[in-house]
C-alpha cells in the first residue's frame, strides 16, 4: 500500500473563533469588574444563611475592624462631595478646597475629625502609611453620629450597612447601633458571607 499519504493530517487548527470569544469574555469581565480599593483594616465578616446580595448602591457602610475600630465607607463619589460640603458647613469645620478634593477620593476613613484634617493634607504616599484609629462613637465624643447626621441630611433615604469583623467586640456594635438610634435609624443591613442552610431542620 503506497497510500500512506492519506494518514497525514494537519494538526494546526483554526483558533480564531476561540480567540474571538475568549477576548470578548475577557473584555466583559474587565469592564464589569469593580476595582477593589485596598481597605485600611481587616474585616472578616461572619456568615449567615441570608441569600440577599449586598450591593453598594445608595449605601453607606459602617465597618468595625478586628481591632474594634470604626470606619465609614461612602462608595458613591458624588455623595462624598455632597457630604463633606454639608459636614463642613453644619459643624463649622474650616476646610480647604484641597482637603475636600482629597476627601472626595477617599472611600473609607476611620479617624477623628482633627486627625482627618491632617490626613487630608498629606500626599498619597504618606496617607497610605497612616494608621487609622477609628471614628469615635462613645458618649463623650460621638463623631459617628455627626457623620450619620450629615449623611441623612445630604441624601434622605440612604441605606445603612454594618460590616463587622467576626471578632470585634459587641461593645462597638452597641455604640454604632446607639448612634443609629439617636439619628432615628432603626433599620439597617448586616453584611455577611453566605453559609449553607442546614438541611436537617
Amino acid at each position: 500500500m503506497s497510500k500512506v499519504k492519506a494518514k497525514k493530517q494537519s494538526i494546526s487548527l483554526d483558533m480564531t473563533a476561540m480567540c474571538d470569544m475568549a477576548f470578548l469574555l475577557l473584555t466583559f469581565f474587565i469592564l464589569t469588574a469593580k476595582m477593589k480599593v485596598p481597605e485600611p483594616a481587616q474585616f472578616d465578616v461572619p456568615s449567615s444563611i441570608s441569600p440577599e446580595i449586598y450591593d453598594e448602591h445608595n449605601v453607606i457602610r459602617i465597618s468595625i475592624s478586628n481591632y474594634n475600630r470604626i470606619f465609614l465607607t461612602i462608595p458613591d463619589q458624588k455623595l462624598r462631595r455632597e457630604m463633606i460640603d454639608v459636614y463642613a458647613k453644619n459643624f463649622n469645620v474650616p476646610m480647604t478646597e484641597r482637603q475636600k478634593m482629597t476627601f472626595e477620593l477617599t472611600e473609607t476613613f476611620g479617624m477623628q475629625r482633627s486627625d482627618l484634617l491632617i490626613y487630608l493634607n498629606q500626599t498619597d504616599d504618606v496617607r497610605k502609611k497612616i494608621i487609622q484609629m477609628g471614628i469615635p462613637a462613645d458618649s463623650t465624643n460621638n463623631e459617628l453620629e455627626e457623620w450619620l447626621a450629615t449623611a441623612v441630611a445630604s441624601r434622605p433615604g440612604l441605606n445603612i450597612a454594618i460590616k463587622g469583623d467576626k471578632n470585634s467586640n459587641y461593645e462597638k456594635f452597641g455604640e454604632v447601633v446607639a448612634a443609629l438610634k439617636s439619628r432615628r435609624i432603626y433599620k439597617f443591613s448586616l453584611v455577611t458571607n453566605l453559609e449553607a442552610k442546614p438541611s436537617n431542620i
Binding site: 475568549a22 469574555l25 475577557l26 469581565f29 474587565i30 464589569t32 469588574a33 469593580k34 477593589k36 465578616v45 449567615s48 441570608s50 441569600p51 440577599e52 446580595i53 449586598y54 450597612a161 454594618i162 447601633v177 443609629l180 438610634k181 432603626y186 433599620k187 439597617f188 443591613s189 448586616l190 453584611v191 455577611t192 458571607n193 453566605l194
Partner: peptide, 21 residues
C-alpha cells in the same frame, strides 16, 4: 485572564440581611 477576572468578581460578592432594632 478570563479565569482570573471571573473568580475575582464572583468570589467577592457578599450577602446581607436586614436587621431592625
Amino acid at each position: 485572564l478570563i479565569t482570573f477576572f471571573m473568580l475575582a468578581t464572583t468570589l467577592t460578592k457578599q450577602q446581607k440581611f436586614d436587621f431592625g432594632v
